[in-house]
Each structure stands twice: as structure tokens, then as C-alpha cells.
């Protein structure tokens, strides 16, 4: 464990908690893409099946359980409890255009052709594009609430910190995982446009960003 990975995990946890609390406190999921949240729940489910097969550390197990729990709680709030506030008309990204190619790629490019490893690979590829429905929805509505932009900032920051973690681990441990690194680079690049808006709009204090 290094400071970049720890900060990355905490940033990820912060994003997940921020979103869950925002929906819970405002009792509304307006402006939130339910599709992205379903994809994240799928990412955690397929990646953390090793909870049943191997124990790495208390930290690892605890965080996985928190991530999975919060992901499903968020999906529940969006599609069940606060269903009336779900903005289905703007959450129209065709997720099958993500899941199918990612599923195929996971079969073609992986470290080991075993069920757990293919599911892990699927999860890594899917996570890199899972935010697209959310970014698409924001571009359609033309605005995002401030709290939603903080959620996206921490979510984007987490994988950027993981990229530094992988540089650190390669240099100090000789460890590197090409699949995770390539997917992580793609994932972080998808946030660049948002990061630019977040920083520039954040300074002007306007409470909504208007992506191009």
C-alpha cells in the first residue's frame, strides 16, 4: 500500500458517499444517471467476487463490502425509493453499446482464461467507460448540480491517483498490470474535459457547469 493508492481509495469512497448522501438528503436523484450507477454496481459485483474465495486484508475486505453496499443502495434509491425523481428522459445512453464490446474484449484480452479472471477483466474494462451515461446526461441537460460535480471530481481523481500508484509500484516493486493501467488511462482521459470545466467554472463560483 502506498499513499497514492490510499488517497485514491479514500477519494473513491468519498465520491460514493457524497452521491449516496446527496440523493438521500435531497430525497431526489435529479441529474443523476441511474444507468451509470447500475454499471458501477455491476463493476463492483464482478470485481469483488474474490471476497468469497480469498482474503487479502481487513482493509481490502471492508472497502469491498462498503463499495458494493453503497453501490446497491444508490441503485435502490434511484430506481425504487426516489423513482419519481429519476430523470429517465435524459438518461438515455445505450449501455448495451458499452457492455457488449467490453464483454467481448474481456474474453479476448485477459491475463488468464478463468471465470474469476475474465469477470475481473470485464469489471476493469467496464469501469473505464461506466461514467459515460452520466457525462452524456449532463451534456444533454446542459448543467450539473454543484454536489454532482464534486462527486465526479473525486471519482475522476481516484483513478488518476491509481495511475500514480502504478508508476510507484512499477518503480519500487516492479509490479505492473497492463490491463488495469490501459483501462485506467482511458478512464481518466474521459474525465479531462470535466476536470477542465470543474476547475475553470469552480473558480468563477457559478453553481452549474455547462459542458460543451
Amino acid at each position: 500500500m502506498n499513499i497514492f493508492r490510499l488517497t485514491g481509495d479514500l477519494s473513491h469512497l468519498a465520491a460514493i458517499i457524497i452521491l449516496l448522501l446527496k440523493i438521500w438528503k435531497t430525497r431526489s436523484c435529479a441529474g443523476i444517471s441511474g444507468k451509470s450507477q447500475v454499471l458501477f454496481a455491476l463493476v463492483f459485483t464482478t470485481r469483488y467476487l474474490d471476497l468469497l474465495t480469498s482474503f487479502i486484508s481487513l482493509y481490502n475486505t471492508t472497502m469491498k463490502i462498503i463499495y458494493i453496499g453503497c453501490a446497491y443502495a444508490t441503485v435502490y434509491l434511484i430506481y425504487m425509493k426516489f423513482k419519481a425523481t429519476y430523470d429517465g428522459n435524459h438518461d438515455t445512453f445505450r449501455v448495451e453499446f458499452l457492455v457488449v464490446p467490453v464483454g467481448g474484449l474481456a474474453f479476448l484480452v485477459n491475463h488468464d482464461f478463468s471465470p474469476l479472471e475474465i469477470l475481473w477483466t470485464f469489471s476493469i474494462y467496464l469501469e473505464s467507460v461506466a461514467i459515460l451515461p452520466q457525462l452524456f446526461m449532463i451534456s444533454k441537460t446542459g448543467e450539473a448540480e454543484t454536489i454532482t460535480t464534486h462527486y465526479l471530481f473525486f471519482l475522476g481523481l481516484y483513478r488518476a491517483l491509481y495511475l500514480i500508484n502504478w508508476i510507484w509500484r512499477f518503480y519500487f516493486e516492479g509490479f505492473f498490470d497492463m490491463i488495469a493501467i490501459v483501462a485506467g488511462v482511458v478512464q481518466t482521459i474521459l474525465y479531462c474535459d470535466f476536470f477542465y470545466l470543474y476547475v475553470t467554472k469552480g473558480e468563477s463560483g457559478s453553481n452549474k457547469i455547462n459542458p460543451a
Partner: peptide, 10 residues
């Protein structure tokens, strides 16, 4: 070919 090294990251 990677060993059965587990994924230790989240």
C-alpha cells in the same frame, strides 16, 4: 502468463 497472483487492489 501471470501466476495465480491475486489482485490486491480495489
Amino acid at each position: 502468463e501471470r501466476s495465480e497472483e491475486r489482485h490486491d487492489e480495489l
